[in-house]
């Protein structure tokens, strides 16, 4: 103990409150985190990212030697090679569910980014520039809002033909209107704030005012809207795939798996429809809960949105 000088001891004693403070801060952060949605989302995201590692089979090819519609592991006569059984082409259900997570999450996230990007940009333009720009953008927003989202998406999908990237663009084109409405409203009030006025008086260009003063202040709302849109977009993708105008076969999408399994429902093979639906439900539930958490944390004014 000889080498522990008074100074080290003092330093150690001094650091204890800091460490405790750090721990407390971590604990508080951990306690504030939405445990349930994260516990659902993180596994799904990991599975989607590492689908090629986790999935036992190629989701688009039949398992060699396996029969069609093999039952899952809990039923009699299950094939140990296919844990959740096989589908109408002898493909592994589990692998299809795993790759389906990838499709769903990519479409959900990318579709939301497209919708959010377009909607936020147009909302800022309408709110900040005002005048005829505002009129044009808001009239288009109103008109597009008049079509039920799903019907509009179906129409676009039949026009451009199915592919995952087309679906992403279509869903972006359908769902941007909500962002435009909300963001425009926010920008209208931001435009009247002192710091925005001062920046304008100081001679900042419109582009600079928008980028430096307006955009950062609407990002919170855009984030909250985005967290709520992901679930909607995932369900819309599933609906399109169910109807056969979404992600094209043989690509595994939860919506088309539901549609494929539908005919077997009547003979009681419920897992073919129930499992993909459960996956959709869990992911959407988790994103909604995340959205609620973000909304309370980022912007109390949006609580009733």
């Amino acid at each position: 103990m000889a080498f522990v000088t008074e100074q080290t001891r003092a330093a150690l004693a001094g650091s204890a409150p800091i460490l405790a403070g750090l721990r407390r801060r971590w604990l508080r952060l951990a306690a504030g985190l939405p445990v349930v949605p994260l516990a659902i989302l993180i596994p799904f995201v990991l599975i989607a990212v590492f689908a090629n590692v986790v999935a036992p089979y190629d989701p688009t090819e039949p398992i060699p030697g396996a029969k069609l519609f093999e039952p899952p592991f809990w039923a009699d006569g299950a094939n140990p090679a296919a844990l959740l059984g096989t589908d109408f082409q002898g493909r592994d259900i589990l692998s299809r569910l795993i790759y389906g997570a990838r499709v769903s999450l990519i479409v959900g996230v990318m579709g939301t980014i497209v919708a959010g990007g377009v909607g936020t940009t147009l909302g800022i333009m309408a709110g900040y520039l005002g005048g005829w720009v505002d009129q044009v953008i808001m009239r288009i927003t109103d008109a597009w809002l008049a079509l039920p989202a799903l019907v509009f998406a179906i129409f676009l999908a039949t026009m451009v033909g199915p592919s995952m990237w087309n679906i992403i663009i279509i869903l972006g084109a359908v769902y941007w209107t909500r962002y435009a409405r909300v963001i425009r409203g926010e920008v209208l009030s931001l435009r009247e704030r002192e710091y925005v006025k001062l920046a304008e008086i100081a001679g900042a260009s419109s582009a600079r005012v928008i980028l430096r003063h307006v955009l950062p202040n609407v990002l919170n709302s855009a984030m909250v809207l985005a967290s709520l849109t992901i679930g909607v977009v995932i369900i819309a993708e599933a609906s399109l795939s169910f109807l056969g105008v979404g992600v094209p076969p043989p690509e595994p999408a939860w919506g088309s798996m539901l549609a494929d399994g539908r005919s077997m429902l009547m003979v009681g093979d419920w897992w073919l429809t129930v499992l993909p639906g459960l996956c959709i439900m869990m992911v959407v539930l988790a994103t909604q809960l995340m959205g609620d958490w973000l909304r309370v944390r980022l912007d109390p004014q949006l609580r009733n949105l």
């Binding site: 679930g231 599933a238 539901l258 429902l265 009681g268 419920w270 429809t273 639906g277």
Partner: peptide, 19 residues
């Protein structure tokens, strides 16, 4: 919001019609 209506429909068919 989270349970797609079409899936709910299929589950209902399973329970109330098939079973």
């Amino acid at each position: 919001l989270a349970v797609p209506g079409f899936w709910l429909g299929l589950v209902m068919i399973l329970i109330f019609s098939v079973w």
